[in-house]
């Protein structure tokens, strides 16, 4: 799992170095996936122990998975989905107004 996180980060950052707008966006998306999986892994992974207290028990299963990171990830996924959708449209408009998909050409507002 941690290897996948590392790969996602590496791929995301590599793609963000590219000059192409679409590759840049895919890089951002991979990076946010990497962050989500990072939370998932950091929260501790267990298999087959749902965080539900059985009917006849009063205490939770001590091996149970922590449900909070998953709730956090859910929130983060929704947010990054919205931001990514907005960024996609923005980059489309940028392409239409500037007629280029090369990020190096977007320099007119730089200082």
């Amino acid at each position: 799992m941690s290897i996948i996180v590392g790969l996602l980060y590496a791929a995301g950052i590599f793609l963000m170095q590219r000059r192409n707008m679409v590759k840049f966006l895919i890089g951002l998306a991979l990076l946010s996936h990497g962050a989500n999986l990072l939370i998932f892994t950091a929260g501790g992974l267990t298999r087959g122990h749902p965080p539900i207290i059985a009917e006849d028990a009063t205490l939770a299963d001590p091996l149970q998975a922590d449900p909070l990171p998953q709730a956090l990830i859910l929130t983060a996924i929704v947010i990054s989905f919205a931001v990514l959708a907005f960024a996609l449209i923005l980059f489309l408009r940028a392409y239409q107004t500037t007629k280029t998909d090369d990020l190096h050409d977007l320099r007119s507002t730089d200082a």
Binding site: L28, L38, T109
Partner: peptide, 27 residues
């Protein structure tokens, strides 16, 4: 639009960093 592209990209990146930090802290 040009300004917004830069603004959105960098802020998105910093949010990803923040999120990762929050996840690690929780872990």
């Amino acid at each position: 639009i040009e300004g917004a592209v830069k603004y959105v990209a960098l802020n998105f990146f910093s949010s990803a960093l923040f999120l990762a930090a929050a996840g690690l802290i929780y872990g």
